[in-house]
Simulated scan of single mutants.
Amino acid sequence: MPFAHTAEAVRAWVDGWTVSRGAAEPVPHAWGFTVDVGAPGHVMRHVLHSADEATVRKVTEHSTAPGIWLKAFVPPERLEPWLAPGWHLAGGAGHLMSAPLPVAHGRDLTGTPDGYRIDTWTRAGVTRVLVRTADGAFAARGQIAVTGLVAVVDQVETDPAHQRRGLGRLVMRNLTAAAAEQGAAKGVLGATPEGRALYETLGWRELAPLTSAVRGPGS
């Protein structure tokens, strides 16, 4: 079942992301949500489910400490001129994406390429998949948080030395299978420009552009 509208997907993404990262409960506002993250360089984030110039200007003018992030579902070229002084774009043109999850049928451990091994574990509502070489070196990873019928994919990455070997697809198949086993029926994620191509091959579709901005130090 698809999301009824983008705002519903945004809320689901925020809820799952906070579980995935162990962040604080999202605080709702008329324009979106604020989340205390508490990490160096990422103290908190504002997520605007509907962005316009007046709202972005107000939020960024009142957020003056370094390490505050903003996520808005508009293209970078639209967001950038709305930012208050001291803010800058970060990460390029991202994408909010969604897909129905497969019916639970077990995890695809048999698809692991020769020379690699895969491990999965679940703790505090988050399932993690780790792919390593035969001698234990990091190759790829990802995690997924299930909140009711929705699962949020997060932090999928493949080491550059191990790209183009199907490891990203392997991670995603196992993450979504694990989420389906836990009762999730649809997924949502925030994709980088590089990750979008992988997700599209797996049936994920863009719901909205996703642009990031950050308040820089000493500004």
Rank of each mutant, 00 (worst) to 15 (best):
P2K: 09
A4H: 12
H5G: 00
H5W: 05
W13V: 00
W17Q: 13
W17E: 11
V19A: 08
R21F: 06
A23L: 06
A24F: 03
V27G: 00
P28L: 05
W31G: 01
G32L: 03
V35R: 05
V35D: 09
G38I: 12
G38F: 12
P40L: 12
H42L: 15
H42V: 03
R45C: 06
V47G: 02
V47R: 04
V47D: 08
S50G: 06
E53T: 03
A54V: 13
T55Y: 01
V56G: 05
V59E: 10
S63M: 13
S63Q: 13
T64D: 11
T64G: 01
G67I: 13
I68W: 03
L70H: 08
L70I: 12
K71N: 06
F73R: 00
R78D: 14
R78P: 01
L79N: 09
W82A: 03
A84M: 07
A84C: 07
W87L: 06
A93M: 05
M97Y: 04
M97G: 03
M97S: 01
S98Q: 14
A99M: 02
A99C: 12
P100Q: 10
L101A: 08
P102R: 08
A104N: 11
H105R: 15
H105K: 13
G106D: 04
D108C: 04
G111Y: 11
G111M: 09
T112G: 00
P113T: 12
G115E: 09
Y116F: 15
R117Q: 15
T120N: 02
W121E: 14
T122A: 09
A124W: 06
A124D: 15
A124C: 05
R128P: 01
L130K: 02
L130D: 11
T133D: 05
D135H: 08
A139G: 04
R141N: 07
G142H: 09
A145E: 07
V146I: 11
V146R: 08
T147E: 14
T147K: 10
G148M: 13
V150P: 02
A151H: 07
V152C: 14
Q155T: 12
T158L: 06
D159A: 15
Q163A: 04
Q163T: 14
R164A: 12
R164H: 15
R165G: 05
R165K: 14
G166D: 08
V171A: 01
V171W: 09
V171K: 01
M172N: 11
T176K: 07
A179E: 14
E181S: 12
G183Y: 13
G183K: 13
G183S: 14
A184E: 12
V188E: 06
L189V: 09
L189I: 12
T192P: 00
E194W: 00
A197F: 00
G203M: 02
W204D: 05
P209H: 09
L210Y: 14
T211G: 06
G218N: 07
S219K: 00
